Simulated scan of single mutants.
Amino acid sequence: MGTAPSFSRVLLKVSGEALMGSKEFGIDLDMAGRVADEVVQAVKGGVQVALVIGGGNIFRGVAGAASGMDRANADQMGMLATVMNALAMQDVLISKGIDARAMSAIHMPTVCESFTRARALSHLNKGKVVLCAAGTGNPFFTTDTAAALRAAELKCDAFFKGTSVDGIYSADPKADRNAERFETLTYDEMLARNLRVMDGAAIALARDNAIPVFVFSIRQSGEFNKVLNGNGTFTEVTV
């Protein structure tokens, strides 16, 4: 699918739901291990990787708010869920021989490092995987937006979003057999079509910082590294 892109530093966003594997809740360590294997392969191939994991497998702030909770409080609970996922993935990566650092946007020094751009860049340059947790540290922002923000801060060459489908569709392909799959889209087309694979703030951040976005299925084994090399199946969002 085109010429193989060359990336030296990337941001990988994985949904919390992806870590559930076949479970209904929580973390499936086998699935976490498979995702970690893909990150390990990329790092050993010379790519620096920053990783953002959502918290939907443990708690989703929007769902909590819809059930009657205060939205800000619900979002803070969701941020804590992402820290739990980051710590789990940090442990799995270290067990596979790759140094990793969970860094939280919320100050919790007895649990993990606080996120600072300088420290995160230092870790990446030393070949460590940086797990950016707790979103932006503020309610009302999704982990997609946090991922786009970190991609910009850390000067990533691209933003890879691993989902449960193999790209961006005009509608949910699981519900609509006639949904159209896109090979490429512009940032503005994403916003104009209101395609909900990512929220508008994340797309706008990527656009304003000229960061290409690649949407692919993280559930397909080996797909992350295939997409890194310009192969596999994905939708590219760019200018």
Score class of each variant (00 low, 15 high):
12 L>A: 07
13 K>R: 06
13 K>W: 05
14 V>S: 00
19 L>H: 02
22 S>L: 10
23 K>Y: 15
26 G>A: 11
26 G>H: 10
26 G>Q: 09
27 I>S: 07
28 D>E: 12
29 L>F: 14
31 M>D: 03
32 A>L: 13
33 G>S: 12
35 V>A: 02
36 A>F: 07
37 D>S: 15
39 V>I: 14
40 V>A: 08
42 A>C: 11
44 K>Y: 11
45 G>N: 15
45 G>Y: 08
47 V>I: 14
47 V>G: 06
49 V>Q: 04
50 A>L: 06
55 G>E: 06
56 G>Y: 05
58 I>E: 02
60 R>I: 10
62 V>A: 10
63 A>P: 00
65 A>T: 08
77 M>K: 11
78 G>L: 05
81 A>Q: 07
88 A>T: 14
89 M>D: 02
96 K>S: 08
97 G>A: 09
98 I>P: 01
100 A>N: 07
106 I>R: 04
108 M>W: 06
108 M>D: 05
117 R>Y: 13
119 R>M: 14
130 V>A: 08
132 C>E: 02
145 T>E: 03
145 T>I: 03
156 C>M: 11
160 F>S: 03
161 K>P: 03
164 S>R: 13
164 S>F: 11
165 V>N: 05
166 D>I: 06
170 S>M: 10
171 A>V: 05
174 K>S: 13
174 K>N: 15
179 A>E: 09
188 D>G: 05
188 D>F: 01
190 M>T: 00
191 L>T: 00
193 R>M: 15
196 R>F: 00
202 A>E: 02
212 P>F: 09
213 V>Y: 01
214 F>K: 01
214 F>L: 12
216 F>M: 06
217 S>K: 07
218 I>S: 10
225 N>W: 09
231 N>M: 13
236 E>V: 15
237 V>I: 15
238 T>D: 12
239 V>G: 15
